[in-house]
Amino acid sequence: MSILPFKTSKKRRFEALIQPHLNGLYRFAYRLSGQQQDAEDLVQDVVCKLYPKLEELESVEQLRPWLNRVLYRHFIDQVRRKGRQGDRPLSELVESDSQADWLDSLEAEEAGPSLLLEQSRLGPLLDAAMASLDPDQRTLILLHDVDGWRQEDIAEILDIPLGTVKSRLHRIRASLRKKLQRQLEPESAPRRVEE
């Protein structure tokens, strides 16, 4: 018996486990990093680190949340490493402008002229409001409200209590609502002076 068939078998087992999750891992990495190349590098790093741990992967019951947790922790480690290289704020390490582009990538459904007009007005305002969020807040709202992740899965991936996920989502939505309301309110008309 040669060694080559064993390696091929290990490779196939690894691919069978990882392949169904690669697109989801990439989307999550892109949400975190905001850059296509950084997201690809992040996924590649994680996959390379996991290949020697095939037996551990095979023992994981729910692989998707586990893989996303590994990817998230690897991303945080990278951000911390970059932060040690210089005294820069976290917002400079993760570019916020490119994360707003996700709205442009969504396919439009058939909409009437009034809806199109409203969307053209709200789109840039929502992009700006999302860009103003901290990367952690943006990640949380994108995972839940855009990608449709369950709060329980987010809590497991981010390794925080479920109640914390719920309260943070509530605060982030309230913050976005206030920002959008301020931008959408018409400028107040001059008041009459009462004598």
Results as ranks from 00 to 15, higher is better:
Ser33Asp: 05
Gln19Gly: 08
Gln62Lys: 12
Glu58Gly: 15
Leu125Thr: 01
Asp136Gln: 14
Asp77Ile: 00
Glu187Gly: 00
Ser96Leu: 08
Leu180Ser: 03
Leu17Tyr: 10
Tyr72Phe: 15
Ile3Asn: 11
Asn23Thr: 15
Ser91Tyr: 10
Leu93Trp: 03
Pro52Phe: 10
Val146Ile: 08
Arg12Tyr: 07
Leu71Phe: 02
Gly112Glu: 15
Ser91Pro: 01
Gln62Met: 04
Asp77His: 11
Val47Gln: 05
Gln36Glu: 13
Leu93Ser: 04
Glu152Val: 10
Ile154Leu: 07
Leu63Arg: 05
Leu50Val: 06
Gly86Arg: 14
Ser33Cys: 09
Gly123Ser: 12
Ser96His: 10
Asp136Pro: 01
Leu184Glu: 07
Pro186Ser: 10
Arg12Pro: 00
Thr8Asp: 13
Trp102Arg: 11
Ala16Thr: 11
Lys11Arg: 13
Lys53Ile: 01
Ser120Asn: 15
His74Val: 06
Arg177Gly: 03
Leu180Tyr: 01
Gln62Phe: 09
Leu122Ile: 08
Leu140Trp: 03
Ile18Pro: 02
Ser33His: 05
Asp77Trp: 07
Gln44Leu: 09
Leu90Pro: 01
Ser175Thr: 12
Gly163Gln: 06
Asp77Glu: 14
Pro65Asp: 03
Ile18Ala: 02
Leu103Pro: 02
Arg191Ile: 00
Asp104Arg: 11
Leu63Ala: 06
Ala108Val: 06
Ile141Ser: 05
Gly83Ile: 02
Ser98Asp: 10
Ile160Asp: 02
Leu4Gln: 08
Ala39Leu: 07
Asn68Pro: 01
Pro52Tyr: 09
Asp153Arg: 03
Glu152Arg: 10
Asn23Lys: 11
Ala128Trp: 04
Leu142Asn: 03
Ser59His: 10
Glu109Thr: 14
Pro186Lys: 11
Gln99Pro: 00
Pro161Met: 05
Asp127Pro: 00
Ile3Phe: 13
Ala174Gly: 13
Val165Asp: 02
Gln78Ser: 10
Arg84Lys: 12
Gln85Leu: 15
Arg69Phe: 07
Leu142Glu: 04
Thr139Ser: 06
Ser96Thr: 02
Lys7Thr: 05
Glu40Gly: 05
Leu71His: 02
Val60Ile: 15
Asp38Val: 07
Ile18Glu: 03
Ile160Val: 15
Leu133Thr: 02
Glu58Arg: 09
Lys11Glu: 14
Gly24Met: 05
Leu162Lys: 05
Trp102Tyr: 09
Ile18Gly: 01
Glu95Tyr: 03
Glu194His: 07
Asp134Tyr: 11
Thr8Ser: 10
Cys48Gln: 13
Leu90Glu: 14
Asp77Leu: 04
Leu4Asn: 06
Glu194Ser: 05
Phe28Gln: 00
Gly86Ala: 14
Gln19Tyr: 12
Ala16Asn: 14
Ser59Arg: 14
Gly83Lys: 04
Arg80Ser: 03
Arg121His: 09
Glu156Phe: 03
Leu42Pro: 04
Lys53Leu: 13
Ile141Gln: 04
Leu176Cys: 00
Glu95Phe: 01
Trp66Asn: 04
Ala111Cys: 09
Gln99Trp: 04
Gly86His: 13
Gln151Met: 05
Asp134Asn: 06
Gly112His: 11
Arg81His: 10
Lys53Val: 00
Val43Trp: 01
Ile154Met: 06
Gln137His: 15
Pro20Phe: 08
Ala128Asp: 15
Arg191Phe: 00
Asp101Met: 08
Leu71Ile: 07
His144Ala: 13
Gln35Asp: 15
